[in-house]
Simulated scan of single mutants.
Amino acid sequence: MIITTARSRAGLLLDAVLTIIGWIGFVYLFGTGILAIIYGAAQGPRAPLLPLFSPTLGTLSSYAVIAAANAAILIAWALYNHWRFKDQDRRKPLKAVGAGHLARSFALTLDQVDGLAVTKIATIHHDAQGYIVEISQINSESMLL
């Protein structure tokens, strides 16, 4: 998900101009570099083209080996997890918590839990130990414990 924010036209225009300048600079430098390699090899002392690119090919081949090793590790990990958890469905939704469980967890009565379930706005007051001491609901009377 991409989060976008509202931006001014001046900010968008500045971003577009800087992006275009950056791409033009990249294409110019890349093109002149490739042309310099090709013309330098063609006008040089009959040197073959491969030795010019051999350091780059060595670097690229080492990158390819590292990428292949990373891919192999990730695939092995995925296969291991598939084998280990094939009979388990970890995406099951949790069971709904019942009113009785909520009442026991927060030391409330079932009537208080039912009142909280139907109210839209409620304020719950706690004591210093964290226990609920009062529940104030909008459009209804306060329930004292």
Rank of each mutant, 00 (worst) to 15 (best):
I135F: 00
P45A: 07
V65Y: 10
I24D: 11
I66F: 09
I135R: 01
L18Q: 15
P93G: 03
V65T: 12
S54H: 06
L116M: 07
H126D: 02
I20Y: 14
I121Q: 04
V113N: 02
T59F: 15
G40N: 01
S8R: 01
A16I: 12
P93V: 09
V133H: 00
L74R: 08
D87S: 13
S62G: 06
I24H: 10
Q43E: 13
A47H: 13
A67K: 03
F30P: 03
Y39Q: 14
L50Y: 09
T56G: 15
T56P: 00
A72N: 04
Y39H: 12
K86E: 08
S105L: 15
D111G: 03
T32L: 08
R91I: 06
A78G: 07
L14V: 13
A47G: 15
Y28H: 11
T59K: 12
S105P: 06
G115I: 04
A42P: 03
T19I: 07
F30T: 12
F30G: 08
P51H: 00
T119I: 07
G44T: 00
N139L: 11
A71M: 09
A69W: 06
R104C: 01
I73F: 11
P48K: 06
I138L: 13
S140L: 06
N70K: 05
D111C: 02
N70E: 05
I138R: 08
R91C: 05
A16K: 10
D89I: 04
S8I: 05
I75R: 08
N139I: 06
K86D: 12
A122H: 02
P55Y: 05
F85R: 04
S61G: 13
A69G: 02
D114F: 08
S142Y: 01
V65W: 10
A72K: 01
A117W: 00
I138F: 10
L49Y: 13
Y131I: 00
G25W: 04
F85Q: 05
L108K: 03
W23V: 15
V17H: 02
W23I: 15
A47N: 14
L18Y: 14
L74W: 10
L50A: 14
A122D: 02
Q129I: 04
D87E: 14
G115M: 08
E134Y: 01
H101I: 11
A78D: 11
I37V: 14
Y63M: 14
E134F: 02
T32S: 09
S136D: 06
L116G: 00
L50R: 07
L49D: 03
G33K: 00
I75A: 13
A47Y: 13
W23A: 14
R91K: 09
L49M: 12
G33C: 01
L116S: 00
R84M: 07
I124P: 01
A68R: 03
R91S: 13
L52K: 02
G58K: 07
I124Y: 00
R46G: 15
A107F: 01
I21G: 02
Y131G: 02
N70I: 09
